[in-house]
Every structure is written in C-alpha cells, then in structure tokens.
C-alpha cells in the first residue's frame, strides 16, 4: 500500500483527456480495460506519441478516440479504416491505429477491412468484440453467436458469425491475435507487438457487454464475464485460424495466431513507381499541402 501513495497518478492518465472523464461506458464493460492495455502498450512500444493518430468509427468502442489524448478522429459509421487509409498515405510518418467495435468494423465496414488487409497498409486495427451492437441497444451483430439473444433476434440468433482471425488472415493481415479482457498482460503485449510491426495488424478483444449481451443471455455481470473468460479461454499461440471460431458456450481459443511478413502497400507502391518511372518518380514521404 505504501507504493500507491508514492504514485499519485495512474500512469494511464497521461493518455486520457481527463476533462472528459467520467466516460460513457457501463460498469463492467471491457472497453476501458482494453484502453488501459493500449496505454501500457504505447509506453512500452516507445512510439513517438506526437506521431500517433487514433481513428474510431461509431459505437461504444467508437468513443475510444475521444478519450485518448492523442491526435484522434471520431469518423462515420464503418469508415474508420478508409479515413485511416487517407491519413497514413498522406503522411506515412504517422502511426495510425483504428480502434473500433465489431459491428462498425465487420458489418457496415467489413468491405473496408478486407481491402485494407489485402493492401497490407501499415495500420493497427483493434477490434473490441462484445458480440452485439451495444450503443444502439443490443441488436444482433455479424459476430453474435448462434442462439444468442439480442433485441433483433428475440428468439435467438440463427446467422453464423464471422470467425474474425480467420477472416483477417485470409484477407492478408500480417499480425493476428485474439485475447479477452481477462488477458490484460497478453493483450498489452500483443498491442505493443502490433505497434512495432510493419503492415496490417489485427487484434480482436473479446469483451463483455454486461448491459446488453450478458444480461439478456443470462451470463451475469462483468465479473461473471471475467470468470467465464478465465475458465473457458484456452491459450493456443500459433493455432490455425480456421480452428478458432467459437460459439455461445464453447471454449474461446486465444493467442497470437499470425505473425508474418508481406510487402506493405507503401513499399510496393514506391517499388513499382520507381521501377516504371526511375528518376522521374517524385517519391515523397509526406504529402505536403501547397
């Protein structure tokens, strides 16, 4: 306890817009936990914080950008990735992180996700997957497990969900990991690795929504979710992503699944243009405004 007294400030505070706290997230929500991990990853990755830009879409996780004391952009629903694409291409010196939810990134924004992964643009995509549309009141998402109740599947979901790590790998991501909000240390490490890796990185965070998912599906509160994650998560680093799908009551395979190298979009672009245009190619690292 003596230690707590000499550290008057939470180390995460330097990354937060404290004037905006308290945040809008519910008690037991996992988004705040993920932000804590992210703050730790920022410190440990030693990235230049003035060159970090956070882009969010719409939804509960979409609010992350607004609480982080970094250059931060709260964009339109589903379009965080194409916004981030413009940011990164116009100033490749920026470290661009997209921080958003499962509905935003994989329903309305699904097409942008696969294309950014295909291009292998140097972005870190952090997806807080709470298995539901939370901001709008608990509707079914493309990640909702079969038979789970939501406000628009009152008799249980009957659409199969995406297996996000498999989707990311198939589309071309160079780094793919999944953790739950129980795995704070592993999650922070994965975030750090992704921040230090070139190419399109994807981290899925299985996170509780006590208000809309847990309660409706009789899964208890935030604490019960932690117990559930602790019991049912199995760490299998390197597991084939085709084997990591989960359903409402099954084990959740977590771990770092993919860590590979592919040429990045900016790399292939410079290479191709230099090859075709030679000295005439006006290669710029920063698209300056005139």
């Amino acid at each position: 306890m003596a230690e707590l007294e000499v550290i008057p400030e939470n180390p995460v505070e330097q990354f937060l817009r404290m004037e905006r706290i308290p945040h809008i997230w519910c008690a037991g929500c996992g988004i705040g936990t993920s932000v804590n991990c992210f703050a730790r990853a920022l410190i440990e990755s030693k990235v230049d914080l003035d060159k970090v830009a956070i882009v969010s879409g719409i939804g509960c996780t979409g609010r992350v950008a607004g609480y982080l004391k970094l250059d931060s952009f709260h964009t339109t629903h589903g379009r965080a990735i194409p916004f981030a694409t413009g940011l990164k291409l116009a100033n490749p010196k920026l470290k661009v992180i997209v921080y958003s939810g499962d509905g935003d990134l994989f329903a309305i924004g699904g097409n942008h996700f696969i294309h950014a992964a295909r291009r292998n643009l140097d972005l870190v995509i952090i997806c807080v997957n709470n298995l539901i549309y939370a901001m709008t009141g608990g509707q079914v998402a493309p990640t909702t497990p079969i038979s789970a109740l939501s406000s628009t599947t009152p008799y249980g979901c009957y659409e199969p969900p995406f297996n996000l790590p498999q989707l990311a790998e198939a589309a071309g991501a160079t780094y793919v990991a999944r953790w739950t909000t129980f795995h704070v240390r592993q999650l922070a490490r994965s975030m750090k690795e992704a921040l230090n890796k070139e190419g399109f990185s994807f981290i899925e965070i299985i996170s509780p929504c006590p208000t809309l998912y847990q309660r409706r599906n009789r899964m208890g509160d935030g604490l019960d979710a932690m117990k559930f994650y602790k019991q049912r998560s199995k760490i299998r680093n390197g597991a084939p992503t085709s084997e990591v799908a989960f359903d409402i009551n099954s084990d959740i395979i977590v771990g770092k699944f993919v860590d590979r190298t592919r040429p990045t979009l900016l790399g292939t672009m410079h290479h191709q243009l230099r090859e075709r245009l030679g000295e005439k190619y006006a290669c710029v690292e920063e698209v300056a405004c005139h």
Binding site: G78, P82, F83, G86, L87, K88, N91, V287, A288
Partner: peptide
Amino acid sequence: EDELAASIAIQGAVWAGA
C-alpha cells in the same frame, strides 16, 4: 473499394496535411 471509402479517405488525407 467504393465511393464511401473514397469520400472519407480524402478527409483523412486532409487531416494529415494534404
């Protein structure tokens, strides 16, 4: 990949300085 993406990518680029 579509016009939605194009019309927001340009705005990302603007905020990056272009």
